[in-house]
């Protein structure tokens, strides 16, 4: 696993966990609206989408090597 991709993916996963876990989650967990949409709804789906995009970018940039 001397692959530089592994630590990056670990970091990404850890950040995602941090953002979806208390106490950070409580910052978005309010009965407030962002424009017309609930704050938590916007927060969770945009962070989620960002996670997907970053994973895809990381994995796509890397020419695949068999582990």
């Amino acid at each position: 696993m001397s692959n530089s991709l592994t630590p990056r993916l670990l970091l990404l996963s850890a950040i995602a966990l941090l953002l979806f876990e208390y106490p950070l989650l409580s910052l978005a967990d309010k009965n407030a609206l962002l424009g017309e949409l609930p704050l938590l709804y916007v927060y969770s789906f945009s962070v989620w989408l960002l996670l997907i995009v970053l994973t895809a970018l990381l994995i796509r940039r890397k020419k695949d090597r068999i582990p």
Partner: peptide, 28 residues
């Protein structure tokens, strides 16, 4: 209970980046 159902899908989403070594090792 609102968005509580999301936890069931965020779990896999958060662990998915680790599949690169976890799931692949399992497969190999």
């Amino acid at each position: 209970s609102g968005l509580s159902f999301l936890a069931i899908y965020l779990g896999p989403a958060i662990i998915a980046p680790l599949w690169y070594f976890l799931l692949r090792k399992m497969i190999v």
